[in-house]
Amino acid sequence: MNGYRIQGKWKNDTLYYGIRKDSLGIYTGEMNRYAIANGYGNYNAGKGNYSEGFWKNNQRNGFCFSIRPKQKIRAGEWKNDKYYGERVNYTSNRIYGIDVSKYQHEIGKKKYGINWNQIRIISLGKLSKKKITGNINYKVSFAYIKSTEGKSIYNKYYKNDYNKAKAAGIRVGTYHFFSTTSSATQQANFFLKKSCFHKGDFPPVLDVEPSHEQIAKMGGAQELFSQIRTWLHIVERKTGVKPVLYISQMFVNRYLPMAPDLKHKYQFWIARYGEYKPDVKLAYWQLAPDGRVSGIHGEVDITVFNGYQSQFSDFVDKHTIR
């Protein structure tokens, strides 16, 4: 049938399940009368290539996982054989965080404080589709606060927010916004001078958001990565923990493959405003730039930790400042 060799099961003289062999591999599972994969099944292409999950018209559609040599498992939603990633179901059981800077204090010409004792997430924003179960009234378990940018810009609200967030029982981390126009050494030293690093704090974050033009102007991606490595090494030596890299999905796709050492050694915080979780080595996922939080005026970046309570406890034990 269609050039396939088939061992199958029939009902009312119609094929509905079988083992189908072709020149590339073996499919085992539900199929239609023409031996086309439809329903739940697995495909073994040999040499460590294996996929299992739901199929439609011989393509992975719905939830599937795929294993390939020297690559991590890809488990999540597939559409027409393309992997989209894990689609997270948002509930109160997940671990949420936020990040703030002066822009939560200065909106237009008005200035606002943050009431850290009232902090609760009340909206995950409207920029992307999200699967949500139950009402959105989520605890904020951690907050990253911007301290510095480049070699001279300091967030004047940083220390007050840092102290009040900790007093409210929220775990705190500090981040630096990277500039392509000043040296990484100057930036790292400025960040270390102006920031707080106390026992139990989350690892420092380097926020890297340059445009293509900025990267080209500073000498290209390899020069950028050289500067990033310098900043990371200086801050790690001083704080005793590996910093986390905050980057966009665009940066992941276009530039990160040029720095396999960073992919291997460091954890990432990915900004991706889509329906599916990023398919990278992930600590945090910023899922919305337009969330709402009680106690804060205006829009707030909402982040979800990559895991549940047991993984979060393990992260706190292994990666926070000692």
Rank of each mutant, 00 (worst) to 15 (best):
C196F: 13
F63P: 00
L224F: 06
W116A: 03
R292I: 07
Q187F: 11
N2V: 03
G291F: 15
Q249F: 05
K47L: 12
Q214L: 09
D301W: 08
A35C: 09
K318M: 10
N163F: 12
M258A: 14
K263T: 14
K159H: 09
N44H: 11
F197W: 09
Y43H: 08
F268R: 02
D261L: 04
Y138W: 11
F190M: 06
F305R: 02
E149G: 00
K139W: 08
D161L: 04
K129Q: 14
Q227A: 13
V88M: 13
I321Q: 02
R254G: 00
S310F: 01
T28F: 07
P243Y: 02
G3D: 04
K126A: 13
A168G: 03
G29L: 11
T185G: 00
I228T: 12
R272I: 06
N155R: 02
G25V: 07
N93H: 07
K164N: 14
A45F: 10
I122Q: 11
H198W: 01
D290L: 07
G220W: 06
K70A: 13
I145G: 04
P289S: 13
S183D: 09
G219W: 06
I6R: 00
Y144E: 00
G25H: 05
R272M: 09
K72E: 14
S211L: 04
T239K: 13
Q186P: 00
H297D: 08
T185P: 00
G18W: 03
Q286P: 02
T28S: 09
T91R: 03
G48C: 11
F65Y: 15
S248I: 03
R33E: 15
Q186H: 04
S123P: 05
N58V: 05
G113T: 14
G29N: 05
I67D: 02
N89Q: 14
I19E: 15
G295L: 12
D99S: 06
K151W: 00
S101R: 06
F315P: 01
V88S: 04
Y27W: 07
R120S: 11
Y284A: 09
Y158T: 10
R229T: 06
F315N: 05
A184F: 08
K129I: 05
N49F: 14
D207L: 01
I19C: 02
F190C: 02
M31E: 12
P257E: 04
I26N: 02
K146V: 08
G274W: 07
V235P: 10
K111M: 09
Y157F: 15
H319G: 00
I234D: 03
N93T: 11
D207K: 01
R74A: 02
F225E: 12
T14V: 09
